[in-house]
């Protein structure tokens, strides 16, 4: 029995290790290619081991450090502020929904769920944000559209509250004369760290990876996030170098390691999100465990 179990563990670990490798290998290709010289890539192709190490792409980016650091600043600001606000609004919405005694809770749940299926399209949203709220060229344009981007998060959180917070705890809080807000703040939230961390991570990823809102609402490049910068460089390199209208001198594009720059910026954009993930992971599985079970 013991030997059989051990062999079984070996086998399972081997399978998982293989899968983990498959997940990580493309990243290694990305990193190693970003430190290969441009002409090496064009001549010999991408490979896992750089044949000729060169940091020319990073050196070019360093030239532009002001812009990159600024973009990092915007990304971090938007991600932190957005995630915190998003968690606040989501949990405030989800908690009353989780209360079995809440009037109209089914209707309200449907009201929220419905938003996942229908949307009005880009133009009206743009009109609303720019004409009504004047969000254009503000950080709010990066934060507001994604605050409750996914009604699913409200649903998960509601379920978590429903299944993990015993009614008795809330009742006893009421007995002690605590108001609803105080119960939520003092009792419910501390018991709900796993789900907060889980939704928090999702929102962090969403905010970190968002480039669409920047593409639409920003013309001021000082507000560009890392993803916007990456996206813009990718697109502009294509456009600028493919257009041939100019009669003036075109040495702007000459000498740029365009291929490796893209990779290097991709690396710079990916690393932080990978770095913070372990901090959330502690709560991650637990948060989903209870949250995703339907109540």
């Amino acid at each position: 029995m013991q030997a059989k179990e051990r062999a079984y563990q070996w086998f399972i670990n081997a399978v998982m290790a293989l899968l983990a490798c498959m997940c990580i290998l493309p990243f290694i290709l990305l990193v190693s290619s970003s430190i290969t010289s441009q002409s090496m890539i064009i001549a010999n192709g991408y490979s896992f081991l750089p044949r000729e190490i060169s940091f020319e792409a990073y050196a070019y980016i360093w030239n532009d450090a002001e812009r990159i650091f600024n973009a990092y600043g915007v990304t971090i600001l938007v991600t932190v502020l957005g995630t915190v606000l998003s968690l606040a609004v989501t949990s405030l919405l989800a908690y009353p929904l989780s209360r079995k005694d809440m009037p109209h809770r089914n209707f309200l749940a449907f009201f929220i769920f419905f938003t996942m299926l229908f949307n009005g399209g880009l133009v009206p949203v743009y009109l609303l944000y720019t004409q009504f709220f004047e969000f254009k060229n503000t950080v709010w344009a990066l934060i507001f559209p994604m605050l409750l981007t996914n009604a699913f998060y409200v649903m998960i959180m509601r379920t978590f509250f429903q299944t993990t917070i015993p009614v008795e705890v809330i009742e006893s809080g009421k007995m002690d004369g605590a108001g609803e807000l105080k119960i939520f703040y003092k009792i419910v939230l501390p018991l709900s760290l796993p789900i907060l961390a889980t939704i928090g991570l999702f929102q962090t990823i969403n905010y970190w990876n968002d480039w669409f809102n920047g593409l639409i609402f920003l013309t001021d490049s000082r507000l560009y996030s890392i993803q916007n910068l990456l996206n813009r460089i990718l697109l502009d390199v294509q456009y600028l170098s493919s257009m041939d209208f100019g009669t003036a001198q075109d040495d702007l594009m000459a000498g740029l390691p365009t291929e490796t720059i893209r990779l290097a910026i991709a690396v710079i954009g990916v690393i932080p999100i990978i770095a913070i993930y372990p901090f959330f992971q502690r709560f991650f599985v637990k948060g989903l465990t209870v949250g995703a079970v339907k109540g």
Partner: peptide
């Protein structure tokens, strides 16, 4: 394992496009 498996979910599709290109490109792909 969990960390590694979730890793691809964390990055944006633009970058995924680059990873795939690095694999499949006719002249330079892995």
């Amino acid at each position: 394992y969990q960390s590694f498996i979730l890793l691809p979910y964390l990055i944006s599709m633009v970058i995924v496009g680059y990873l795939v290109y690095a694999m499949l490109s006719m002249e330079t792909g892995f």
